[in-house]
């Protein structure tokens, strides 16, 4: 898995990457480009539901969450 991660990282570094200047980042900084639309609580709710109903988790940050979830 570590090899896969390194390979993907190298692929991202090379080839299709373009040098983007700060003044070209307007679209990238819009809420459209955030999966949660800029609403952190929305994502937190969803992750809490998945955490309590499924047998796997992780990959969405190191902070927050956790419950008894009976």
């Amino acid at each position: 898995m570590i090899k896969l991660f390194i390979l993907l990282s190298v692929l991202l570094f090379s080839g299709c990457v373009k040098e983007v200047q700060p003044w070209e980042k307007e679209q990238l900084s819009s809420d459209l480009m955030k999966p949660d639309g800029g609403n952190a609580l929305y994502k937190q709710f969803q992750e809490h539901i998945y955490f309590s109903k499924e047998g796997s988790k992780g990959g969405v940050g190191v902070a927050g969450g956790g419950c008894g979830c009976n």
Partner: peptide, 26 residues
């Protein structure tokens, strides 16, 4: 006890796209 470690590599690809790869261990 619950420990969580994560590494994320993020890359802007061009003016309209970006990508990331995250490796996690718990």
């Amino acid at each position: 006890n619950h420990s969580n470690f994560q590494t994320t590599f993020s890359q802007i690809l061009d003016e309209n796209s970006l990508a990331s790869a995250t490796l996690f261990y718990m």
